[in-house]
């Protein structure tokens, strides 16, 4: 069953007088429980596609559905609510709030729920436990290594138990060892917790961890490199 359905999406930007078409009729599906890597050269539209799926950006035309909800038709307020329940997002630059501790950073998405303080505490401890940082609760981002920061960001992305976890170059700022740790963690999230994961990456080693690799170039899928497991969909 497709969790993400993208149908005939067009996306263009204006740069001064010039119109830049990123997608011209893109369609694809991403299955529930899949682990997909989006690859491609810079400017191919990988991050734009991720942003469209997360509802951070809107298509010029076409539809984006996630879990049956038409993301591309939501108002900013509806999108905020929907994102808080359904999407976890991890950025290349970690983007933790520097003035908050690891615990407080991870707690942020839960402040949008009706959970009690006690329930929130429990969830945060579990999420930081999953990423192996339950001994760093009161550390500020500046007191953590890059790999640890990214793991905190992943804990923040999964703490509200979203259906979909989106990661934009999550290993782009990490050394080889930290990258391996993060990728292993993503594999666990997919295998053990059945999270649907979409990762944008330039790194072939990172992409190899995914069960499905999609290559984008100039806004179209040029190749479906590998399909591990059952994930399959209309690509074009």
């Amino acid at each position: 069953m497709a969790l993400v359905e993208i149908r005939n999406v067009h996306k263009s930007f204006r740069r001064d007088a010039e119109r830049i078409d990123v997608f011209s009729g893109l369609s694809m599906d991403i299955e529930q429980g899949s682990f997909t890597a989006l690859m491609g050269p810079s400017g191919s539209g990988k991050s734009t596609l991720l942003n469209l799926i997360a509802g951070l950006d809107q298509p010029t035309s076409g539809t984006v559905r996630v879990g049956g909800a038409e993301v591309s038709a939501m108002t900013p307020a509806q999108l905020a609510e929907w994102r808080s329940r359904n999407v976890g997002f991890v950025f290349q630059q970690f983007n933790l709030l520097p003035v908050l501790t690891a615990f407080q950073n991870v707690e942020l998405p839960l402040l949008l729920t009706r959970l009690s303080k006690k329930e929130r505490d429990e969830r945060v401890r579990i999420a930081l436990g999953v990423v192996g940082l339950d001994d760093r609760l009161q550390h500020y981002p500046r007191q953590l290594s890059g790999g640890q920061e990214q793991r905190v960001a992943i804990a923040r992305a999964i703490v509200a138990d979203p259906t979909l976890v989106l990661l934009d170059e999550p290993t782009g700022q990490l050394d080889a060892r930290s990258s391996q740790e993060v990728l292993s963690l993503l594999g666990r999230l997919n295998d053990e917790f059945n999270k649907t994961i979409i990762i944008v990456t330039h790194d072939p080693h990172a992409a190899e961890r995914a069960k499905r690799q999609l290559h984008l170039d100039k806004g179209t899928f040029v190749e479906q490199a590998r399909t591990a497991g059952t994930a399959a969909g209309a690509v074009g």
Partner: peptide
């Protein structure tokens, strides 16, 4: 601005 963007991404309303 990046921190604000993160908060908006997490689902905090404008």
């Amino acid at each position: 601005a990046p921190e604000i963007a993160v908060l908006l991404t997490l689902g905090f309303r404008p």
